[in-house]
Write a protein that binds this DNA or RNA. Sequence first.
DNA 1: TGTACATCAGTGAACGCGCGTTCACTGATGTAC
DNA 2: TGTACATCAGTGAACGCGCGTTCACTGATGTAC
Lengths: 183, 183
Amino acid sequence: MLAMSTSKRDGYHHGDLRAALLRAAADMLREGGPAAITLREAARRAGVSPTAPYRHFAEKEALLAALATDGFRDLGKALAAATSEKSAGLNRAGEAYVRFALANPARFRLMFGHGVSSMPEHPELMAAALQTFEALTGMVARNGGDKLAAIKAWSQVHGLADLLIERMIPGEEPEALIAALFP
Amino acid sequence: MLAMSTSKRDGYHHGDLRAALLRAAADMLREGGPAAITLREAARRAGVSPTAPYRHFAEKEALLAALATDGFRDLGKALAAATSEKSAGLNRAGEAYVRFALANPARFRLMFGHGVSSMPEHPELMAAALQTFEALTGMVARNGGDKLAAIKAWSQVHGLADLLIERMIPGEEPEALIAALFP
DNA sequence: TGTACATCAGTGAACGCGCGTTCACTGATGTAC
DNA sequence: TGTACATCAGTGAACGCGCGTTCACTGATGTAC
């Protein structure tokens, strides 16, 4: 399967086009942000005709939604990994959240509003986002906080991530801020 | 004609085309978000040829930047108004920030990353954004906080605003959240 | 076992689309003498 | 005071652009008998 990943066509059929398109789109996202993603270019990179993607995604937004969905799952994994140790407190989750955004700014933007016009039209995306939030709520609960505390923590951490990747905080090193805010 | 109500053409010259274009663009922003703003449509709405805007804006991004700049100034005013009373604490500023975002979601998005590709290329925009942040830092300082506290407060409030307008917080009324978080 | 046939996953041509921007231009205005 | 002239703010035609998407199609594959 992975051998297929470098657009190895065994003839007419691709073998794993859906995954190849997602990979291509993820590259384009990294290279030029959400607006740089193009169905035609993704097809080109996968070595396939411009209309082949329509066998796997009903429309361009469906591709973007799938990409964002993956993003939420990855973020969820990152949060889980950061809090897997017994001794890990909420600060580890916060740090992981901000680091995820700094490491994948374009993907983070795609997940939060840039690109997918309306989340409710993509149930999988909704579900993945909700699950991330619920994981976070769980972590806060384990530290004795209620839902309001979870929203507060999420806002805190999300705001910092967003302001940092948009370069809105003047004269501060991200690393120094993370160290100071999540000791 | 509708265009005539906002643009008084006394003949060849418009009189106040720059302002008219900004108004048209602000309307389009409200109607369809940052991506819906088009130079040609703005010209159309101002009752002017497609190329006339180039007398006032070097390129499309300059228009967007001007719009975002106005946004930061308006946000600054809103924050100042909310804290004008002696007794007003930091919570009033936070509340005003979130309310601004809820009342002008598209403009808020434009200000924070959606639309203008790189802020440093627009000094006026940079300056306006910086000034807003400094106003906020000043408010925090008056309440005994340092710069780190200001960044923390800004993150908190910005994150809540962003999550709310992107409809990421499930099952919560914005009003109830504001009341709970900014008592 | 071979084969007919349904279904799936591609192809390739074509369409409409409005956009941003350049260019050479012209009409209107303000000012120096 | 009138006038020449520079400058400013519009016009209108044109260009290139690649995009998303539809359509009728064909090649490949899996399966029932």
